[in-house]
């Protein structure tokens, strides 16, 4: 494989990993606050259709991306009202949100099937983007790819280093203690849920505007569920979510390449299992290693909280 081809393969990996990274990071923040939202797939679809429809209608990709995040957040708001204010079961509500998102996005997107859109522009850095290998790998992506990397670092910093991040974690670890020392548990969780929705919306927008610039029903094809699994296997750490997303994306692409190269004598079905196996194996080994600390599932994950009156 020539250097040029290797770069192209790496670019494909980055593109395959980015939507998973966005969605998983958002869900990580939600779960850190003690809420389990299984509606990632539905929120991604809402983002995908909103991003696409607005970009096509207005010609502005920036507006499209903003609306995708808003659409995701709006879906999350429905989830928030039901589970946080009305104290509905989070698992059932999350599943319902996915089903709702599939139907709603299909309805809204009906007029956009088969419509082409210009892919997001690559942001080139003059001088740097022309460098061999490093140029295209590091300095020639679209804005969302950069944003996903920044978001990883930003969320890591926010959760570990800021006061607000600590409050969010406190709410997720012990809602009653956080409440008794005066934090508004419900408000913190609302904000986390909305943020998670916006990130899922961005994941969807990346799919419909960059990865495969088109709208098609159910185009997320299960990526929301993979993102949910990544959060668990990364033991709720942003850095490991990044690792997991790139690993999953990477092995997915490599197995496609292996098939194209004649399969190396391995059945295609086995190759197709590799991304799942590799990601689970690597993240489990990391989580079980001597440097692991606690397993880190937020103690109040999925628990209902009703403020004592």
């Amino acid at each position: 494989m020539s250097a040029e081809t290797a770069v192209l393969v790496m670019l494909t990996v980055i593109s395959a990993a980015t939507p998973l990274l966005f969605a998983a990071l958002g869900e990580l923040v939600v779960e850190k606050s003690g809420v389990l939202n299984l509606g990632v797939e539905g929120m991604m679809l809402a983002g995908a259709v909103a991003g696409f429809a607005v970009t096509v209608s207005t010609g502005s990709a920036v507006l499209g991306i903003v609306c995708a995040a808003l659409a995701g957040a709006l879906m999350a708001l429905i989830f928030g009202v039901l589970t946080l204010t009305l104290a509905a079961n989070q698992v059932a509500t999350g599943l319902a949100l996915t089903i709702f998102g599939v139907g709603l996005s299909a309805l809204l997107g009906a007029g956009f099937v088969g419509v082409p859109v210009a892919p997001l522009p690559k942001l080139a850095v003059p001088g740097l983007s022309d460098l061999a290998v490093i140029g295209p790998l590091l300095f020639a992506h679209d804005a969302l790819v950069y944003l996903s990397i920044l978001a990883t670092a930003g969320i890591g910093w926010f959760l570990a280093r800021t006061r607000a991040g600590m409050i969010l974690r406190a709410v997720g670890e012990s809602d009653e203690s956080a409440h008794s020392i005066g934090y508004n548990v419900i408000r913190v969780r609302y904000l986390a849920v909305l943020f998670g929705g916006a990130m899922s919306g961005l994941a969807g927008a990346f799919l419909s505007l960059s990865h495969t610039p088109m709208w098609a029903e159910e185009m997320t094809a299960g990526r929301g569920w993979i993102a949910l699994a990544l959060v668990v296997f990364s033991s709720w750490r942003p850095g490991r979510v990044l690792l997991g997303a790139y690993l999953f994306g990477g092995v997915t692409i490599l197995q496609l390449h292996a098939q194209g190269a004649g399969g190396l004598g391995i059945p295609a079905q086995v190759l197709s299992m590799l991304p799942y196996l590799a990601t689970i194996a690597v993240l489990t080994i990391i989580a079980a290693g001597p440097w692991r600390g606690r397993l880190d599932a937020p103690a109040c994950l999925g628990k209902l909280f009703r403020p004592p009156t």
């Binding site: 593109s15 395959a16 495969t212 159910e218 094809a221």
Partner: peptide
């Protein structure tokens, strides 16, 4: 030939 094990997954088909 590359198998994607799906009738419909735009992202994977593109990859």
């Amino acid at each position: 030939v590359v198998w994607v094990n799906s009738w419909y997954d735009p992202g994977k088909e593109g990859d």
